[in-house]
Measured scan of single mutants.
Amino acid sequence: TEYKLVVVGAGGVGKSALTIQLIQNHFVDEYDPTIEDSYRKQVVIDGETCLLDILDTAGQEEYSAMRDQYMRTGEGFLCVFAINNTKSFEDIHQYREQIKRVKDSDDVPMVLVGNKCDLAARTVESRQAQDLARSYGIPYIETSAKTRQGVEDAFYTLVREIRQH
Rank of each mutant, 00 (worst) to 15 (best):
E75A: 05
A121T: 13
K15N: 01
T86M: 15
V80K: 03
I141V: 15
Y63H: 11
Y3P: 06
V113F: 00
R122Q: 08
I83A: 14
Q130E: 15
K87Y: 03
E142N: 06
S144H: 10
Q69E: 15
L18T: 04
L18Y: 01
R160H: 12
E48M: 07
I138G: 02
Q164S: 13
F27Q: 04
A10M: 04
V124F: 06
K87M: 11
E90S: 07
R160N: 11
T34R: 02
F27E: 06
E161K: 15
T123I: 07
T157S: 10
S88Y: 08
A129K: 01
H26F: 15
I141E: 08
D106R: 14
I99Y: 01
I141D: 00
Q24K: 06
F155Q: 00
I23T: 13
I92S: 05
R148Q: 13
F81G: 05
G150W: 08
V108T: 11
A17C: 06
S16T: 12
E30Q: 11
Q42C: 09
Q128E: 10
V124H: 07
E2C: 05
P139D: 03
N115G: 07
E75G: 06
P109G: 02
Q60K: 15
R72E: 03
V102R: 03
Y95C: 11
M66Q: 04
I23M: 11
Q98H: 09
A145N: 13
Q21V: 07
V28L: 05
R40K: 06
S38Y: 10
I54T: 08
R122M: 10
K4F: 07
I141G: 01
L52H: 07
K41W: 03
T123W: 04
N115I: 01
F81M: 05
I45T: 12
Q94E: 08
A65Y: 15
K146A: 14
C79I: 15
K100L: 05
H93V: 15
T73M: 07
G74S: 04
Q24T: 14
V124A: 10
R101I: 07
F155E: 02
A121M: 14
V6T: 06
F77V: 03
M66S: 07
D107A: 08
I35D: 02
Q149W: 07
A17Y: 10
I138H: 02
V124K: 12
A120L: 06
I162E: 01
C117L: 08
T19R: 04
V43K: 08
Q21H: 10
V13R: 01
A10L: 12
L51I: 14
N85M: 03
V151F: 12
I83E: 07
V44Y: 07
V13G: 10
I99S: 01
D53L: 02
S38A: 09
Q98I: 14
Y70E: 03
Y31R: 03
Q42K: 04
S16N: 03
V111T: 05
L119Y: 11
R67Y: 06
Q128H: 08
C50L: 13
D37C: 04
F77A: 00
E97F: 06
L52C: 06
E97Y: 07
C117W: 13
F77R: 00
L112P: 00
R40S: 10
G47R: 07
Y136E: 00
N84Q: 07
C50E: 07
S88E: 11
D131F: 13
F81C: 14
T147G: 12
Y39S: 01
T157V: 08
S105W: 05
L52E: 04
P109D: 01
S64N: 09
S135I: 14
I83N: 05
T57R: 02
K146D: 14
G14E: 00
L51N: 13
Q130T: 09
D131A: 13
A65F: 01
L132R: 05
I20M: 04
Q94N: 15
P33I: 04
T123P: 14
V13A: 12
E97C: 13
V8E: 02
A145R: 00
H93L: 10
A133I: 02
G59H: 03
F77S: 01
F89M: 11
D56A: 01
S126V: 09
E125W: 07
Q130N: 11
I45K: 10
Y140M: 00
K103G: 03
A120W: 08
D32P: 03
Y156L: 13
S16C: 05
V80D: 00
R72W: 01
D107Y: 07
I45A: 11
P139A: 06
E36D: 13
T123Q: 10
V28A: 07
R160P: 00
G12P: 08
E161G: 07
A154Q: 01
R134F: 05
T19P: 06
L119A: 14
G114K: 00
R163E: 12
Y63A: 06
S38G: 11
I162A: 02
L51Q: 13
D131Q: 09
T73E: 15
L112D: 00
F81R: 00
F77K: 05
M71P: 03
A129S: 06
D91I: 15
T73H: 13
I23S: 13
S126I: 13
D91Y: 13
S144P: 00
R134N: 13
Y140H: 03
L78M: 14
Y63R: 14
R160V: 08
G150S: 11
V8M: 02
T1I: 09
D37L: 01
R72P: 04
S64T: 13
H93N: 15
V151Y: 13
A154C: 09
I141R: 05
D106M: 06
E61G: 10
V28R: 04
C79G: 03
I45S: 11
L78D: 02
D91V: 13
G11A: 14
E36M: 05
V8C: 02
H93T: 10
H26A: 13
D107R: 14
A58I: 01
V102N: 14
Y156E: 14
T34H: 02
I45Y: 07
D46H: 09
L78R: 02
E125S: 10
E152F: 10
F155G: 00
D107W: 10
L51V: 14
N85G: 08
K15M: 03
K4I: 03
A82C: 12
Q21M: 12
L5A: 05
D29S: 10
V80R: 00
L119D: 15
H93K: 14
L55Q: 08
I35T: 05
C117M: 12
Q42T: 13
D153E: 10
E30M: 06
S126E: 14
Y136G: 09
Y140P: 00
R160T: 11
I141C: 06
S16R: 00
E62T: 04
Y95S: 08
T1F: 05
G137H: 00
Q149I: 05
D104F: 11
T34M: 02
S16Y: 00
R134K: 09
Y140W: 03
R72I: 03
D32W: 05
C50N: 14
V80H: 02
D29Q: 13
G59N: 00
V111Q: 00
T143K: 00
Q98G: 07
Y140D: 03
G9K: 03
T147C: 14
V6N: 05
Q69M: 13
H165K: 15
H165S: 15
A121L: 08
E61F: 15
F77Q: 00
E2A: 07
V28Q: 09
R148V: 12
L18H: 02
K100R: 12
E62G: 12
V102H: 00
E152W: 09
R163F: 09
S126P: 12
Y95H: 06
N85F: 06
T147D: 14
L18C: 10
E97A: 12
F77I: 07
S38V: 15
M66K: 08
Q60E: 15
G114W: 00
L55G: 09
Y3S: 07
L5H: 02
S135F: 10
P33E: 09
D29M: 05
V124P: 08
G14K: 00
H26R: 05
I92P: 02
Y156G: 12
G47L: 06
G9Q: 02
R72S: 05
H93M: 15
P33A: 12
A120P: 09
L132N: 06
K116W: 15
P139T: 09
D29T: 10
L51H: 13
G76P: 00
D32M: 03
A10E: 04
R101K: 09
E62H: 15
I54E: 00
E36R: 01
E142G: 04
D153I: 11
L119S: 15
L78W: 02
D107M: 14
E36A: 02
R72D: 06
E125V: 10
H165L: 14
E36W: 04
I138R: 04
R163Q: 09
T73G: 12
E2S: 04
I20E: 02
Q42Y: 07
R96Q: 03
Y136R: 06
D68Q: 07
L52V: 12
A82V: 07
A10G: 11
S64H: 14
R134S: 10
E36T: 06
Y95L: 15
K146H: 13
K15S: 04
Y3M: 15
G11T: 11
V43H: 14
